[in-house]
């Protein structure tokens, strides 16, 4: 278990300079996620056109792992269909929790999250944004769903 496996350069970079960070005009869903035990809190803004995630941004505050995970997620899901994004959620969830999961090339930069599973106390930091996303995409009325919590 090495610290560099957790805090890879990609993670540190996305923590320092989160992508797609800020409000999103014309969002069709704004979903809050929180991790009450550690105080991490984020809001995911989604603009869904037809079946596709036309745009996505996030706001909030959290540790490097949760910030980088959300930043990487927004890059990865922009332009994808609901089904594609949910399929990606499943693969990232496995990467974070399943010791047998091996990151494949199609995950791209998201593979940097694979070091998190060696630090069990931090898994929920990385998964907060993904659970928030999945809840939003599975909801028939994402504009009215309650806040998501990882506890």
């Amino acid at each position: 278990m090495e610290l560099k496996d957790l805090y890879r350069d990609v993670i540190l970079d996305h923590n320092r300079t989160p992508r797609n960070f800020g409000p999103l005009e014309g969002a069709s869903a704004n979903v809050e996620g929180s991790n009450p035990l550690c105080g991490d809190r984020l809001t995911l803004h989604l603009r869904i056109a037809g079946d596709r995630i036309a745009d996505v941004k996030f706001e909030g505050h959290g540790c490097a792992i949760s910030t980088a995970s959300a930043s990487l997620m927004t890059e990865a899901i922009k332009g994808r269909t609901r089904a594609e994004a949910l399929e990606l959620f499943g693969r990232v969830h496995a990467l974070l929790t399943d010791d047998a999961a091996v990151p494949d090339e199609s995950l791209g930069k998201l593979a940097a999250l694979s070091g998190v599973r060696e630090f069990p106390a931090r898994v929920k930091c990385a998964s907060l944004c993904w659970h928030t996303l999945a809840t939003a995409l599975r909801s028939p009325a994402p504009e009215s769903i309650p806040a998501v919590s990882t506890e």
């Binding site: 610290l3 805090y7 550690c38 105080g39 540790c63 931090r122 930091c125």
Partner: peptide
């Protein structure tokens, strides 16, 4: 500045130092 308390806690633990982070 620039380092969330939870990241501090994880890095310090790797150095054998136990502190509390959170609210």
């Amino acid at each position: 500045d620039g380092v969330h308390p939870h990241d501090l806690g994880t890095v310090l633990d790797q150095d054998g130092i136990a502190i509390r982070t959170g609210h």
